[in-house]
Amino acid sequence: MFVIGERINGMFTEVRKAVESRDKGAIQRLAQRQLAAGADALDVNVGPTRGKAVDNMLWLIEAVQEVTHAPICVDTPKFDVMEAAVRACRNPTIMNSTKASPAELDRFVPLAVETGCRLIALTIDETGVPRDVDGRVTMGATIVTKAMEHGLAMTDLFIDPVILPVNVAPKQPAAVMGAINQLKLISDPAPMFVLGLSNVSQNCKERSLLSRIYLAMCIGAGLNAAIMDALDEELMQAAITAEVLLEKQLYCDDYIAAYMSSR
């Protein structure tokens, strides 16, 4: 499981304050805590911070790069911010994200190929998030076609089939898993699959439990990566356990400790 830590995001008050007061130490501590907890990469999102988005993004990336060589997942929908950010990244970089409309893909995919980045593409277009499996599969096919057209390797492409909160969209969790299953079947080699996991439990009472169980179910369906709260110990343990049960990790009695120390 490729774990992308979600906590460096301006939506969190502590991050927003740190960005606005240029408190590098706070960001760096958050980066290191997530990596120690099992994150393989770090999502970086300026969120609703004051000031110019591009300046804030570059400052955040620099703060993170000073303390780790771990991959950085540049999280912005704006092309100009993305381009400036990926060119400033010395660490391996994941572009997060592009939408599935051809015009967007024609800008983001060539940038990923040119800069050697991996790319997350969402199954969203100008019509919004598909309501069912078929809509996601159609958009997924568009993404794969565009990636191949521009020469992006399937190992560098993550499709995010976009999960919505279960309390407002109860049919969506099953639809997302169905889409992962079908897209894996129709593309060979298959791309990777990622989810912004925490969205599934947005505004729900049992947030941690919902995210945890859903992550295990999605790993069973073929999910390769998640943008998630690596600091949630039980969530990390669920991910590791699901991979052991699929024999993606070798079992031993202390498999949690083995996984954490083997990274």
Binding site: L250, Y251, C252, D253, D254, A257, A258, S261
Partner: peptide, 13 residues
């Protein structure tokens, strides 16, 4: 026993 092998390496470590 590959699982026991892995476990023994943890114990030794």
């Amino acid at each position: 026993d590959i699982n026991l092998s892995k476990q023994l390496h943890i114990l030794l470590r």
